[in-house]
Write a protein that binds this DNA or RNA. Structure first.
Lengths: 341, 341
DNA sequence: CTGAAAGCGCTTACAG
DNA sequence: CTGAAAGCGCTTACAG
């Protein structure tokens, strides 16, 4: 930004051509303007030689686009979202975009605020992991026609592009693996929520249990996410005493906390109870566990890749593309914790 | 950015004043231009009424400053750095700055690249957690006069502003606590590195051990950070067999992995060995541990706060402020793991 | 295939 | 205390 920065005009002067030509040659698709190949090569070579760096502010001001997108997470300290953000950033930087990241900490007021802040900063579009209670903010945004893609979670009653996991399939895979290992008394440990993705995981469990003619044991309403540790300390022994042979968890955090609680009770997996976790991105605990933990793996890279591309298509179309809902496939990573010992 | 956006000119027209006056009134310090109080109030009220949003691109282009800073971390998946980044972002947004974040994954080539990328994007300054081997990139940056603040780690031979922990004090505190609890055979578990902050932690341990007339047991060179788990699995039993009564760890990650390894060996803390971890930001493992883990706590908020303010002072001064090195105080959070059982 | 020129929305010397 | 005007560095119709 210093005054000694090389500009398009300096380049033009040095080459004896117009700034127009330089601008064309430096653009992403110079062919569109039918600039000769030699000219493109000549200009770009000179640009490199003089270390020309386009001025983003000028570009944005003129084009009305910032080439910046905003990513609003529900919780940046969740490794799963942090990893997805990383993938989005990779995609973005390869495509000349800059990413602004914010976190709502699962608070809908903060979401409304962040949307405004990012729009004021001139982002061209938003990728959002909505929290509970975000419906009004999201539907307002959709109504305004602002380019938007939801990720991980969506709302049944809002028509908006999204990239989500096939959650039904995810827990079905887990149930079937345990059944194949010979387990019958399989419990699903979740928590009180209205998030569709978590509820879908419960539905996947129910469906698979029914198809296997097994009785469901759902511990969804007994857990308050803000005091997991204590809840699990009282819940897990009860479940095991009642004859539960295997546990499936609806989230990564729940699974990790449960694993630590189980260890601290002096029990082991799968000897005392079989165990399938959800998502292995924060796997240091899983990997270190001597026997290895079976878990449902989400395609993190695909989340980032698809969301970014969907958003950019949306931006380029001026917010007028069709609604696209992409559902990604989970994968079961099988280790010892789901096998009969 | 749409064409229906309200501009400074629309405001001026609506109020019957010049754009100059509007610009003055909307600036951070309108008093500087001796605009009358009523006028400021009138203009700002109208701005609010018409929902005026200043165009950042125009502002940047004109002023030559982007009001954007870059934060380059050594490892974004480390919760300690993620938390600091969060604090920097809070500070930044309160002061009208936007933060761009990148991670080098401890690779010096990536650092050199990210510095370039961020400069091309027009950041006004950089906050960097340098990785090993970053000396050349950092000293080049310092020589160019670009506003820069290092965080967490610094280099003895480079004269650059920084915010670091008083690492000597950190491990001294730990040693003294264990000694006060009656332990004598205290080992320091670290890893092979040239990072000054880690080496300082070793020095703090050495110093405190000497002052207490105790013999040092340092396990620094025996651990390769990329295969901690296996290393610890062989190291820890050996140490304990040799009579080590207490362990101090030089990093958060090392401590967490060690705790899990200790558990998996069927041992408990502090019955089999006393334990002091480094930093509790990723404390879910610590908190869940039944007895509670004593750890050295770093002042995360202060890291973010001081680094941001130092950088902004630097930016405003055009990179010509004095070098300032801020050393923050660690705190020992005492739980059961450092007490005689 | 190439050039002259307008204009994006601001800030800020300069002049009153 | 206030206004007219230049200009930041680009992109892009328009005209050849």
């Amino acid at each position: 930004m210093k005054s000694n920065k090389v500009t398009i005009r300096d380049l033009a002067k040095a080459l004896g051509v117009s700034t127009t030509l330089v601008s064309f040659a430096m653009s992403d698709s110079p062919k569109k303007y039918r600039v000769s190949d030699e000219m493109i090569a000549k200009i770009r070579a000179k640009a490199k030689e003089m270390d020309y760096q386009p001025n983003n502010a000028a570009r944005s001001l003129r084009s009305g686009k910032s080439n910046t997108i905003g990513v609003i997470l529900s919780d940046i300290s969740n490794r799963f979202f942090a990893d997805i953000t990383r993938c989005i950033e990779d995609q973005a930087s390869q495509n000349g975009y800059t990413v602004l990241v914010g976190s709502t900490d699962e608070k809908p007021e903060r979401l409304a605020n962040l949307i405004k802040v990012f729009q004021n900063k001139g982002v061209d579009g938003l990728i959002i992991v909505p929290c509970e209670g975000a419906e009004s903010s999201i539907s307002e945004l959709v109504a305004s026609g602002f380019p938007l893609v939801l990720i991980d979670r969506s709302f049944d009653n809002i028509n908006v592009s999204s990239v989500t996991l096939n959650n039904i399939k995810a827990t079905s895979l887990a149930v079937n693996e345990l059944v194949a290992s010979g387990y019958r008394k399989i419990a699903f440990v979740s928590y009180k929520t209205s998030l569709t993705n978590i509820l879908d995981r419960e539905m996947g469990y129910r469906k698979a249990m029914r198809l296997n003619d097994l009785k469901e044991h759902i511990c969804a309403n007994e857990i308050d996410y803000s005091s997991i540790n204590n809840e699990l300390l009282s819940l897990l022994p009860k479940l095991i005493k009642q004859g539960t042979e295997a546990l499936i968890f609806s989230t990564n955090r729940l699974a990790i906390e449960a694993l630590i609680v189980i260890q601290s009770m002096g029990m082991t997996v799968p000897e005392d109870v079989a165990f399938i976790g959800f998502d292995g991105s924060e796997t240091f605990a899983f990997n270190l566990y001597p026997k290895g933990i079976t878990y449902i793996k989400q395609p993190i890279e695909q989340f980032g890749y698809e969301a970014f591309n969907l958003l950019v298509a949306n931006i380029i179309a001026g917010g007028k593309t069709d609604i696209v809902n992409i559902e990604l496939n989970p994968e079961l990573v099988v280790k010892e914790s789901s096998k009969k010992s």
